[in-house]
Every structure is written in C-alpha cells, then in structure tokens.
Design a protein around this nucleic acid. Sequence first.
DNA 1: ATCAATTGCGTTATGCTATAACGTGTGTCA
DNA 2: TGACACACGTTATAGCATAACGCAATTGAT
Lengths: 134, 134
Amino acid sequence: MIAPALTKNQSLVFEVLNRSDAPMSAYTILDRLRDHGFRAPLQVYRALDKLLEFGLVHRLESLNAFVACSHAQSDCCSRGHGTVAFAICESCGHVSEFHDHAVDHRLGDWAKEKGFKPAKTTIEIRGLCSACAA
Amino acid sequence: MIAPALTKNQSLVFEVLNRSDAPMSAYTILDRLRDHGFRAPLQVYRALDKLLEFGLVHRLESLNAFVACSHAQSDCCSRGHGTVAFAICESCGHVSEFHDHAVDHRLGDWAKEKGFKPAKTTIEIRGLCSACAA
DNA sequence: ATCAATTGCGTTATGCTATAACGTGTGTCA
DNA sequence: TGACACACGTTATAGCATAACGCAATTGAT
Ligand SMILES: [Zn+2]
Ligand SMILES: [Zn+2]
Ligand SMILES: [Zn+2]
Ligand SMILES: [Zn+2]
C-alpha cells in the first residue's frame, strides 16, 4: 500500500494528529478542524480511513482513538507494518509505539499451529509511563 | 478478586454470554434479556462491570463486545488472570482465548526496560479460524 | 434494635462513536 | 464524449456507554 499525495482533508487530519502528543478521538479532531471548514464526522472518518490504509495513522482499539504512526525510519521488519504494539499511559496520555520480533513470531507460531489466518493484530498495554509512575 | 455469589442480573448476563458461541454487544445482551425484565442498557453494563471484575467475562476491545471467560481450569499462570490473548474469527465469530508465556514475559520485559508500569494488556488477533480459512 | 454505610437496582436522559444514503464536482482514460 | 473512479459535503441514523436521580435490601457496627 504505497501512499499517493494526500488530499487536503487527509493532510489536515494527519497534521492535527502529528502535532498531538496524545491520541485523539475522531470528534476531537473534528473540533480542531472546524476553522478549516470541517462540519461533519464523515469528513474526519473518511480521511482517517485512508490514513490508516496508508499506514500513516494507527487506531487504538482500547481508546476508540487515533495516533500518527511513530515508527523510527530505521525499524526493521515493521516497515510496511508488521505487527506493532502500543504502551499507553493512562495518566499523561503518551503513547509509545514499538515492534517486537519475539512477540510477533510467537503469536504467528500460535496461529500456524491452530490453522488460524491472522489479518490484523492489536496489542495495547495500558498503564503508567516511566515519568508518571515515578 | 474472589467472586461472591452472583446477583440475579449478573447471573442472567453471565448465562447469556456463556451460552453464546460468539461475542455479544451489551445491547444484544439487553435484547436477549427483555423477557427477564431488562429494560435499560445500564442493567447490562452494571452486571458486566462486576463480571469483568470477577474475571468471569472479558471485553474484546476491537469489537466493543464481551465473551465469557473460557480458560481451561488447568491453565498455568493465567489463573487469577495473567495476560490473555484472543483469536477472533471475522467470518464465524468464534473466539479462542489463550495464554502464552513467551508473549507475556516479552511484553513484561519491554515494560521493565522502559520503566512502564502495565495495568492491563489487550492482545486480539482478527482473522479467519481454521474452519473458515479452509 | 437502630442507625449508617454499602451495594444493587430501575429509570430517564444524555453523550460519544461510527456509518448509511444521497447528491455534487473533478479528473482520467478509452 | 461518455464511463468510471474518487474525493467531497450534507443530513440522518445507528450503535456504544455513562451521568444523575431515587429507592430497596444488606450488612455491620454501636
Ligand atoms: Zn506505525
Ligand atoms: Zn505518563
Ligand atoms: Zn479468561
Ligand atoms: Zn471461523
């Protein structure tokens, strides 16, 4: 899934997410973009659908919220988006995105053993980041 | 968290979930229990909150739905509910609940290394079960 | 026994999240 | 030019979850 140039709405939504240091709900994004002509949830959801498809944004299932992808460019097999995990701080909202071979392969092995064909894997750890746990 | 005897509403909700072979949303549970006097979502959500607390039920974050716990009694460290993972078939709806040491420890190691204090971990694999993938 | 605290319950209203369905405009490519 | 794909805007609706109120039953001191 190679990303073409973003449309105006897609760019606006992506910029808002990229500047945020915490996940945002679609409706929060909508409110941030009222000044740019956004009026309805669908304008946000349609942009998000594409951004998710391009791998520029992730959905956090346990929050019903979205974050910009923060993969380091140097990441190994997670380029093209292998399975990724998120550590979500419930105090400050900070999200750490990471890829872990061992976890990915272990879940893959389980699936192979059971004949299960994985399509998308969600891994989210809720808790307190180092700064907030101190 | 030791579970006291369930109240009437808690028992009703648990029985409905336990008999189901697929996850159910709170509103679907509500509809199933109209004949038993359920009228409002809160009656379901309040029972679910307790059942989750007792570890008798799990919430599937990627579906906004609930399943009865299906741990084998013989399960190792997952008694008392260590981290558990779910494989969810997007065709037939069947859910397999399992515990995997390696995954659990690996995520624990990552957290320890980063100083992150995990509170609750969500692992959900969406895909096709062996029967539906055939 | 009685009072206070806790817990469960029922009801109404509300808020948050997500999609259906319809129509418009624009660019691409036979 | 006509067919198609795609982004966009709008209105309405569906689906998920909680706030706030009050009442009833239970428990556990005093
Ligand atoms: Zn990413
Ligand atoms: Zn934090
Ligand atoms: Zn379980
Ligand atoms: Zn299946």
